[in-house]
Structures are given as C-alpha cells and as structure tokens.
Design a protein around this nucleic acid. Sequence first.
RNA 1: GGCGGAGUAGCUCAGUGGUUAGAGCGAACGGCUCAUAAUCGUUAGGUCGUCGGUUCAAGUCCGACCUCCGCUACCA
Length: 668
Amino acid sequence: MTEKKYYITTPIYYVNGSPHIGSALTTLCCDTLSRYHRMRGEKTWFLTGTDEQATKVYEAAEKVGKSPKEFVDALAEEFKSAWRNLHIENDDFIRTTEPRHVRGVQEFFSRLRDSGDIYRGMYEGWYCVSDETFFRDTDVQEDHLCPNAECRKPLRRVQEENYFFRLSAYAEPLLRHIEENPDFLQPDFRRNEVISFIQQGMRDMSVTRANNGWGIPVADEPDKVIYVWFDALINYVTAAGWPDDMARFQELWPADTHLMAKEIFVRFHATLWPAMLMALKLPLPKQVYAHGWWVGSSGQKEGKRTGGLPHPSEFSAEIAQLTGASKDIAVDSLRYLLLREMQFHGDSEFNYDNFLRRYNTDLANDLGNFCNRTCNMVGRYFDGTTPDGTVDPEISGLGAEVLADYDNALKEFRFNGALEAVWRLVSRMNRYVEEKKPWTLAKKGEMAELASTLRTCLEAIRVMATFLHPVMPFASRSLLEQIGADHIQTFEWRDASNWNLLNPGAKLPEPQPVFPRIQDTKSDEPAKGGSSVKQEKKLSEEIIKPVQKEESPETTATAESETITIEDFMKIQLRIADILAAEPIPNATKLLKLTVRIGEETRTILAGIAEMYQPDELIGKQIAVVANLKPRKMKGIESQGMLLAADVEGQAILLHPETKVPSGSRVR
RNA sequence: GGCGGAGUAGCUCAGUGGUUAGAGCGAACGGCUCAUAAUCGUUAGGUCGUCGGUUCAAGUCCGACCUCCGCUACCA
C-alpha cells in the first residue's frame, strides 16, 4: 500500500460525435502525464470515458431513428477507437450507462438525501432542455430564449417538484479548503476566479429532472432522473470502485489530478464536485487543473469554438500524406505538435502553417536528421555496429540539466517547456557533430576519438527517445530501432540519466528517416511537383475553414466590382432622418435604440454604434437611413430601418448631410 | 459595473530594478559535406502599447489612459 500511485482523469465526454481537437488535447495531456509517471515507476491509473445520460441524447437518438442505447453504444465505440488511434493508453473507460456507475450514482444520491444535503423543493421557472439548466425569471429576457449566448434556444416554462443539493452550505468549507491547499485548484488565476465565484454566493442547485425516458432515475422515485452534471461528476469515484469495491477505492482515491478544459472548471469541477464530496465526507481530489482552448486564427472571436479546427484524425492523416510517414509516426508527430505549440494555461492560436513548419524544423530537420546522420556515419565508419568509447561528459552533463528542467516543467504541466528542454540537447548534438567533424576524424584515422564521438551521439539519441516516450510512444521506439537498441524492452525514466546503456557491437539496421520531411512548399514551380504544394494550400483553406479575411475598404470596393443598374439602386429608399431620442439597450453592448423622424413619420431604429457614440451626442443630428428595409427584431425590439455609416475597421462612423435639410429628404 | 490577465523583433514567446533587451522560427549572406534541399556560422530587424511619476538606474515599481482577452454581475 505504500506504493505510490497516480490516478489521473479526463472529464467524461458528452457523446455528440467523434472527439474534436479540444477533447483530444485533454486526453493527450493525461496520457502523456500518465506515461511519464509510469516510467518513473509509479502505479498509474488513467481514466477517461463518456457521458451518456443527457436528455439531449434521447432526442438526438430519436432524430436518427435509433434507440438511445444503440446510439450511445455506437458513439462510445467511436470515442474508444479515436483514442486508440491517437495512441492513448487509458487504464479504464467508464460509460455512465454502465451498471457500476448507475448504481453508484443512485447510492451517492440516496446517502445525501438521507443526510439532508439533498432536500425536496418546488421549482418554478424557465428551463433550457438543451443545456439542462434552470434559469431564474430575472435571467431571462422577454424573448424567452436561453440566456447562454451559444444556445439561444427557446426555454420551457416548468413547474415541478425537484430535489436540491445544499451547495450553499459548502461555500465556506470550500473557501477554507482552497485557501489551505494552494495546489488544489490550478492554475492560480483560475483559482482566483473560483474564489470570486464562490464569494458572490452559491445557490442550492436543482439536481433532479422529470423523467422523460432517459437518465439515471432516483432509486425509489422513478419519475425523477438525476441531473446530468451531478451524475457525470460521480464517475470519478464509481470508476474507482465506490461504493461496492471499497478496497480498490481506498487504493485509488483521492484522484491525483482531474484535468479538464477551462469551461467546466469553475462551476463544476472546482465547486460543485468538491462540495458533493464534502457532503459525502470523502476526501477531495489532490488537484483540479484547467487548461485553455485551441482557438482558430484571429478574427474568429465569437461563436464557433472548435468549428475551424481540424479533427485530430484528419490532421494526422494529412501529416502522413504530406510526409509519407507511417500513420503511427504521423499520430505521434501530431501529439508532439499539439503539446509543443500549446500554452497549457491559456488559449493557444491554432495555426496550421506553424504546425507544419514546426514538423519540419523540430522533427524532420533537428531530431530526425540528427538520428539519421549519426546512423549513417556508424554505418560508414563502423560497418553499422555500435562503437565502444567514452561518452563526452559535457554532453551527459547537459542531459542531466535537461532532465531537471523537464521534470520541473511537467510538475507545472508546461509540456512545451519540457519539450523545449529536450530540444536544447537536440540542437547541441547537431552542433557537436559539426565541432567534432567525424568525417575528418575518419580521414585522419583517429578511430578512438571517432568511436567516442559517435557513441556519444548514439547514447544521446537513446536518451532523447526516453525523454520523448511519454509524448511520442511509437516514434521513440522507432528511434531506438534506428540505433540498434532493441535490447531495451521498456522505457524507464532512470535510463534518461544513464549514458552507458548501448551494447558495443550491436548491429544497426539500414538508416531510414524517422520523420520524413515535408517537401519545400515555397519553391514556385507551379507545374512541377505541384501536388504537395497544392495539397498544402488546399489544406490551409479547407481544414481551417474560417479564414476570415479582414476586409479593407479597398478590397471590398474592388472585390465587389459587379455592377448594378440604376433601377437596382432606386429600389433602395434612402432618406434623411432627424434623431429625436437615443438610448442604450439593456444587455447589449453595441446596440443603441434610436427614435427618428423621417418626414412626418416616427420610427424606431436599432444601430450597432454604442461603442462609438454616446446617446446624448446623437440627439438632434441628421443621418441617412434606409427607409424601406424589412423590419427586424433585435433584443426583442423591432428595428424599422437601417442607418448609413462608414465602416472603419468595424467601427461605424455616421454620415451627416453637409447642411441642415428637411426631414425625410430623399438621398440619391 | 467588479475582479484578473495581456500588450517586447515579420511570427510565437522569454525576460529576478543594474552593462549595448534575448530565444526559436522566418529573411539575407557565408562555411561544411556524415545527413532528410540537411546542418553549422554571421548579419539584419525593437523609442519593450501611450503619457506621467518614483529612483543614481525602469521592459521591470507606482498612477492614469488606450487596445485585446478571461471570469463574473447587473440589466423591465
């Protein structure tokens, strides 16, 4: 029992299609950490799974004409195979439809109901089916659409008796725990967000819903199902054996790391979940860690979070195609690129070209080519057998520094920092070869020096492979094969500080590039070798769809060179209007509500100019408006026209007549 | 509205109050030949968001402002 164990989890993923790059990132980070800890001799347990009890599942299954069970079975399989394809090696995969979970959730619920932490109450208000969330009257506008900006679906008015979890009672204990355990919530700035969230007051939470045929029923009240988030979080303990296999549970719990993306940190993993555990008097997880998102290239601010990002399987397939590398090498390369390019704690911009460039520079040119040139020289000067000799102490010394930096970086989940450290060794080794000039040593017949030099290079490749194994489990094996180190069966962290592991005389295979280069795409030979060039261009445009170009005034003018007739233009009734009143619109940052007079007529016009103009300064001004535009409702108010303004980098500049003119004057 | 973060080279980012502000990539030039148009070297390129203050000394500390971002609220 004194054996150190490391229990790490991803969130369970909502089954709505194959995994996108975000869930792949979380899972990849966990996999890398899990492999790293295992290499260090710890007993690791890496859990992931699927969240299958949401009401939405029922509706989605209906839509495709499947039973919910068939539907989730298929999707769970899709997740499992996607993870296999990403070289993810999880120890357990929990589905919330499994008996071990369902039973555990019901037990969890019953115990809290017995203890009074879950109590009966009447709920009346608005409910969003899609988000499975209740909203207070004050949260809802008169349009009765979901306040969640990314949802905006119609709400249902519901009145039902529900159970509530006494979340409010745990605000103080939670704050105390957070304060006493600074490492509990990470990173720091997100912990602070949690603290202010709790301090603003946490309300008790409705944790049941009416049973509509899907979800985990309350044990003795089958007309109610348990709220999907309440159910989902419990997977971390049911997968560990709670409540039936307490021996196993004692061994695994508390989890060492819950890792997840930032959007489910504050409200769920950093508050609700610990409160639930406190209520049940179970130990809290040691660490809850949130990472940022991959976001599309700039210009894409709202809406689509993952819309423009490639699916991991597509991207690795493209790498394989561009390089000619095997699928396994391509997948490992993607793993490297994702972890190297990511700023773990914040958001990172996903830039396709940067990814490809880094593949070439880091993997093909620096690491791959170093391995290849070393093996070629061993082939040429030592007939392809591992030479004996003394490893240069300067190089092994650098290896020790890299090891320390790597360990420190991973402690803080800075994957990019760990990899950067490894590449210090990689570039040192390329320089080392240049300094030692093995080809000159060979000509001069200085074979002892030559042997030591190449042995140093070979050991360095082995150490690099060890460092890289958590990130590139397959490619690290390929590196070992290249240097004829097949006798090393398993990767162990202690081998990273041992610089004398290769067997002299061991035979190397014929050298093969481990990371084939992406052919130069910049050479402008459109006819020749065009396939890869075209291929890459196509990828940039198709995989990263939202290439939202900022349209400058000139490009707009020239791009829209299509002409219209005078009749077309005359269809638009442009008129001069007097602004009678202007006021801001609640809950809107850009919109102003203008009351204008066009001749004898008074109208309401909404305009997105609040960031540029104060209401006061507009009153009395004359503006040009489109008078015969179809009315449109925004924020529950009908806008009866559109004003004209110059668009300067997204900012509206109003047009005014040069001198005062009669209201309603035609503009042409 | 409140709290927090960020703004440094063409790009991505480092930078404990202390010489001429750094790295990688990209660019230009040169060397080498073991290697995957590879690699090694050199060079160019920055009024460190703006203004003011503290200090012998400010990218770094303080204040104000601008821009972007995150969390959160209020809002019939």
